[in-house]
């Protein structure tokens, strides 16, 4: 006679946007530190994108509590073994990294560039955390399926990467910056992430076995197989394969990846709560 928490659309959006924010940031920081000068657009797009997203995350989290000021109650304590508790702190810390990196991404001096890279190296960890802790949060609850999904955090992280990278490539496309080398690299990184996400998803399902039925059969199955696995991962990979020199196709594939990332959070949260 378990009870579900009633985490609905606001939390679906939070998980989705938090994943993109984390993914975009760590992609930016990696491009910034290990890429060449010409990957600078990728770094800037990723840093700057993560800022409004993490702000939206904060608003969604606070709004879901009903009484906004009660958010402060989370800051009374820090429980290291509690994903909800560290999560609240990390959203704040990530926000600060995101802000500083965004501002510094407009720098013109070599010294501030170096500073931004160093800050990015630390921020990477907060980005990874933000993209994955929501999965661990679900898997350390008492709910069936969630609590049996050992790879929920790993899967959310892979999805945060693929959607974060897709979002960066879309921004480059829309701002006309897709001519540079950076666009090709971020698309390539996105393909790696998608392939990895498919692998994680396969192991995730295999480990779950019959516990995965809320996803794999029943009401949410068409959305899961069609929306996430098909439209959200396999189709974009194929599009990239056949048309990776055609920019519009590549942009379309990024859009589908984003849709798939949303579907993932939606089916995971809603399949046992409705």
């Amino acid at each position: 006679m378990l009870k579900t928490p009633g985490w609905e659309m606001m939390i679906v959006w939070y998980f989705f946007l938090g994943g993109i924010a984390g993914g975009a940031y760590f992609t930016a920081a990696i491009a910034d530190n290990f890429g060449g000068a010409r990957d600078r657009q990728v770094a800037r797009a990723g840093y700057v994108l993560s800022l409004p997203l993490v702000m939206a995350c904060g608003v969604l989290l606070i709004a879901d509590l009903g009484v906004p000021t009660r958010f402060l109650n989370m800051l009374r304590v820090l429980k290291f073994w509690d994903p909800m508790s560290i999560g609240a702190w990390v959203v704040g810390a990530f926000g600060m990294f995101s802000f500083v990196s965004s501002v510094l991404s407009f720098s013109t001096s070599a010294r501030t560039d170096a500073l931004r890279r160093k800050i990015g190296l630390v921020g990477i960890f907060f980005g990874f955390f933000l993209a994955s802790y929501t999965g661990v949060l679900l898997s350390s609850s008492a709910q069936p399926f969630w609590s049996e999904a050992r790879l929920m955090g790993a899967l959310f992280l892979a999805s945060g990467a693929s959607t974060g990278m897709a979002a960066i490539s879309l921004i480059l496309f829309l701002t006309g910056a897709s001519a540079g080398e950076g666009w090709g690299k971020v698309k390539k990184a996105d393909r790696y992430s998608m392939v990895f996400e498919l692998c994680v998803l396969a192991i995730f399902l295999a480990l779950l076995g019959s516990a995965a039925t809320p996803l794999t059969s029943g009401h949410f199955a068409p959305l899961f197989w069609g929306g996430l696995v098909g439209v959200g991962l396999i189709v974009p990979l194929l599009l990239d394969l056949v048309g990776h020199r055609v920019k519009t196709l590549a942009a379309l594939s990024a859009l589908l990846v984003l849709a798939g990332g949303f579907v993932l959070r939606y089916v995971v949260l809603m399949s046992i709560q409705s």
Binding site: F26, F34, G35, I124, F128, L157, K188, A189, Y192, F196
Partner: peptide, 19 residues
């Protein structure tokens, strides 16, 4: 397991962006 996933994802991005 999430940290493991982060390492693999990070490595992928590193390979893609390596100058």
């Amino acid at each position: 397991l999430s940290i493991g996933s982060a390492l693999i994802v990070g490595l992928g991005a590193l390979l893609a962006f390596r100058d």
